[in-house]
Design a protein around this nucleic acid. Structure first.
Length: 656
RNA sequence: CGCGGGGUAGAGCAGCUUGGUAGCUCGUCGGGCUCAUAACCCGGAGGUCAGAGGUUCAAAUCCUCUCCCCGCAACCA
């Protein structure tokens, strides 16, 4: 394999305030595919990912959970089913993983901050904002909701705090030139967004320190200040290579980055702030920033609050990592948003992977085994004009694939591969090997047909390797490809596979999925997950208003005994109680609790009722009073318990 | 007039930069095959490309306006 030089690629460092979702997986898989592709083609690749672990939100989350911020992020990053587990499961081949809480990074950030301060690119000023006293939180004008605190809705007041600022404005012209006149930022549509929204209105200096929280890298020359996200997080791309630290020593080798893959919401930080910081540090700029689209759910974005976060861990376990990896890049154009759905996922697995690719391998290997002793093709094969189209398509595939990959057009690259897979399936129909097999004279021809199919599979498998490493290896194993006909070089050459190859029948690559059943199962799982995400127990908020003693005393609570209880006809909520209230006359009360109790289990119980409410008709029957219950919410579900008291209490006993 | 993206067959999407027969997947209808994971192959039906106007010999594609959906607006990929 020829060494073409280095390739440094990064994902954003994710914010571990919660478990990662399918959107994070999308970005990371795309980066992984690119990294594997570059390695395949002979580059020395450095692939970096990591986590951005400081900030107010994590400080808050940790407090809620009753742990230290470090314990909190440790759990999400290193804990069970955490970030590291997820990337391992998804077969992510990152060479390095950076956490912004790593010592070497923190020290480097302090050095960078100090350098920028000493050379005048960072200065001390005041940060003006709005302050909510009860919440002890700073807000910017734009964060306010109707001019009030977005958290509690109360009035806010003007406030100032001391802060350090980065002279972003100084670099405005150079940034504008970078965006408008180079292909630094892609896709191109993102450039307009940046220019119109941020450059044209004028770049303001950027607040790069905080005193309102402590979970961050301390500014070492000014206690009380912590470095804010910009310098802390963005600089990971160079500190992870060893910039300003002794942990690593690869800065000179790999910087500048060849591409930063980022989500569209952080394009601004990577295309404006990050280059400006690098300009100030007098360092080379990354060659490219690519802002990919989002995975949407039901047309809207994913968010915890919508309770619609899809769990990549679960999907990987259920369908296999390769299927999920493939689906993410096959289905959605990388530069724009895509609609994630379980139907689409299962549909893609069935159509592309099971029916087309899996079945092609299965039928091909099976025929070779059936028609040729020991699954070995004989020498002396007979070509035919019928083969030309297939061979031409397969021979030209690598170049088309490469062109698409170089544009980060994963969807197009896969689409090209599947054109060949499709063509090969058709080729089987055209050549009808089962007909050839009936006459021994056709043996040379039959062997050639099989060889052509194996060759098509081989080239496809090599090119699928970055997307589905495990699957591609299994295909190559089954068709008997040796390492020398499994590399990038060989993918561009028809005929690399030995003519007398021996195949090995294996299991099905991707079993077909029963769509209906599977969707129902997934919905059930997601419902459970949603439920688990809701608070375990919630109770009604307490009333602020006071009730005076006399009013309270007017409510006549009594112990009552259930003499009979039955469902009310045509009602699915109401139970009809016949009660002994100690007066000697039966009392009838209707209560809307049929979904919580069966009538027969209540007979004989001693309950509590208020008996001096005005009688009220429900479903044509009179209810004289109300039974008292305790209510609360569990995982979003209403729960109710009738108040049952000691049976030693006689009917009619007054509660006071 | 804050900015950006989008509105193309029943569903989901590509095509739009560089105008010239409207394409893919699923679904549906019909046919073929039997090697294979009830998979594979062929064919049909189904679209006034959101609406209106303009440029042009020619517009889904370029320009103008209108309507609708979504996202962003200092840190959720």
């Amino acid at each position: 394999m020829s060494n073409k030089g280095k390739f440094y690629i990064t994902t954003p460092i994710y914010y571990p305030s919660d478990k990662l979702h399918i959107g994070h997986a999308y970005c990371t898989v795309a980066t992984d595919v690119m990294a594997r592709y570059k390695r395949l083609t002979g580059y020395d690749v450095m692939f970096l990912t990591g986590t951005d672990e400081h900030g107010q939100k994590i400080e808050d989350k940790a407090r809620e959970a009753g742990v230290t911020p470090k314990q909190y992020v440790d759990n999400i990053v290193e804990g069970p089913r955490g970030v590291l587990d997820l990337w391992k499961l998804m077969n992510i081949s990152n060479d390095r993983f950076i956490r912004t809480t790593d010592d070497y990074h923190e020290h480097a950030v302090q050095k960078i901050f100090r350098q920028l301060y000493e050379q005048g690119d960072i200065y001390k000023g005041t940060y003006k904002g709005k302050y909510c006293k009860p919440c002890e939180s700073f807000w910017t004008e734009s964060q306010l909701v109707d001019g009030k605190c977005p958290d509690c809705g109360r009035e806010v007041q003007d406030a100032e705090e001391e802060a350090y600022f980065f002279r972003l404005s100084k670099y405005a012209d150079r940034i504008r030139d970078l965006l408008e006149n180079t292909d630094f930022l892609e896709p191109r549509s993102r450039v307009n967004e940046m220019i119109n929204n941020f450059i044209k209105p004028g770049l303001e200096d950027l607040c790069v320190s905080r005193t309102s929280f402590t979970w961050g890298v301390p500014v070492d020359f000014d206690p009380g200040h912590v470095v804010y996200v910009w310098i802390d997080a963005l600089s990971n791309y160079i500190t992870a290579l060893g910039y300003d630290n002794d942990k690593y020593n690869d800065y000179d080798k790999y910087w500048p980055a060849d591409v930063h893959f980022v989500g569209k919401e952080i394009v601004r930080f990577h295309s404006i702030i990050w280059p400006a910081i690098l300009m100030a540090l007098n360092l080379p700029l990354p060659k490219k920033v690519f802002g990919h689209g989002w995975l949407l759910l039901d047309g809207g974005k994913m968010s915890k609050s919508k309770g619609n976060v899809v769990d990549p861990y679960l999907l990987s376990e259920r369908y296999g990592v390769d299927a999920l990896r493939f689906f993410l890049l096959r289905t959605f154009p990388f530069g724009s948003d895509g609609n994630f759905s379980n139907e689409a996922l299962i549909g893609t697995i069935n159509t592309d992977l099971a029916n087309d690719l899996g079945n092609l391998l299965s039928r091909t290997v099976s025929m070779v085994g059936k028609y040729f002793e020991g699954g070995t093709l004989p020498a002396g094969q007979a070509a035919d004009a019928l083969d030309d189209e297939l061979i031409a398509l397969a021979s030209g595939l690598r170049d088309k694939y490469e062109a698409a990959m170089e544009r980060f057009a994963f969807q197009d690259a896969l689409s090209e591969v599947f054109k060949l897979i499709s063509r090969a399936n058709k080729y089987i129909d055209e050549t009808a090997p089962w007909v050839l097999s009936r006459d021994e004279a056709n043996r040379p021809r039959l062997a050639r047909v099989m060889y052509n199919l194996l060759e098509s599979l081989r080239i496809s498998a090599v090119l699928l390797t970055p997307f589905m490493p495990g699957t591609a290896a299994e295909i190559l194993r089954q068709i008997g490809a040796c390492p020398c006909c499994s590399d990038w070089e060989s993918a561009g050459k028809w005929g690399a596979l030995s003519a007398t190859v021996t195949v090995t029948r294996g299991g099905n690559l991707f079993p077909r999925i029963d769509v209906e059943k599977e969707l129902a199962a997934l919905e059930e799982l997601e419902a459970q997950a949603r439920k688990a995400a809701l608070p375990a127990v919630e109770v009604e908020p307490f009333l602020e208003e006071q009730v005076d003693f006399d009013t309270f005393c007017k409510s006549d609570f009594r112990a009552v005994k259930v003499k009979a209880c039955e469902n009310v006809k045509k009602s699915n909520k109401l139970l009809k109680f016949t009660l002994d209230d100690g007066s000697g006359t039966d009392r009838q009360i209707l209560s809307g609790i049929a979904m919580y109790y069966k009538p027969e289990e209540l007979v004989g119980k001693t309950l509590v009722a208020i008996i001096n409410l005005p009688p009220r008709k429900m479903m044509g029957q009179e209810s004289c009073g109300m039974l008292i219950s305790a209510v609360h919410t569990e995982h979003g579900e209403e729960k109710l318990h009738l108040l049952m008291v000691d049976d030693a209490i006689p009917a009619g006993a007054k509660l006071c």
